[in-house]
Design a protein around this nucleic acid. Structure first.
Length: 157
DNA sequence: GGCACACACGAAC
DNA sequence: GTTCGTGTGTGCC
């Protein structure tokens, strides 16, 4: 075997993405092009599947992918787990929610949600871009605001 | 364990 | 514009 970490970088119309997985599931999605020196040379078919799904999703057209069902191998805190679950349950494709509303769903505070979403290892799969500020501004995003804006836009159309 | 500080917020002034 | 309350994560002691 090798180090058990697989990595795949590819370009999209919005910029580069790099995917990481183990043989147990998807581990991380990073914005930008990253080296794969620490990864196995062996190919991971799951990453190629995910890449295709993401590209499909980014097309945003009819038939484009609207959700992702993958086995994940990322580590979440209990709070993150609760938060992401609530997000998935309450906010579907094309919708947005404010940090406060999301916080209310799990009886927490907006600040805490921002903190947890900011350390989300799996943007896009976990649709943290659908969480925005209550005053209509976007708030932040790990990969840069332009990504967040783009993702919201493509879901709206 | 405790404590201080950082945050992708919100509300109040 | 500002300041304050807020819950969670992280790091340092």
């Amino acid at each position: 075997m090798g180090k058990g970490i697989y990595c795949l970088a590819f370009n999209t119309s919005y910029g580069w993405l790099t995917l990481y997985a183990t043989n147990k599931g998807i581990k991380e999605i990073k914005f930008g092009k990253w080296g794969d020196k620490n990864s196995d040379k062996a190919k991971s078919s799951i990453l190629y599947e995910l890449k295709e799904d993401i590209l499909c999703y980014l097309e945003g057209k009819k038939g484009g992918r609207k959700s992702f069902e993958y086995t994940l191998d990322a580590k979440f805190s209990d709070f993150q787990l609760k938060l992401f679950k609530a997000l998935k349950k309450n906010v579907s494709y094309g919708e947005t929610i404010s940090y406060k509303e999301l916080a209310d769903k799990i009886k927490s505070s907006p600040r805490a949600c921002g903190q947890a979403l900011g350390s989300n290892p799996l943007p896009i799969i976990i649709p943290c871009h659908r969480v925005i500020q209550k005053n209509g501004e976007l708030g932040g995003f790990g990969g840069g605001i332009k990504w967040k804006q783009a993702l919201i836009n493509l879901e709206k159309s």
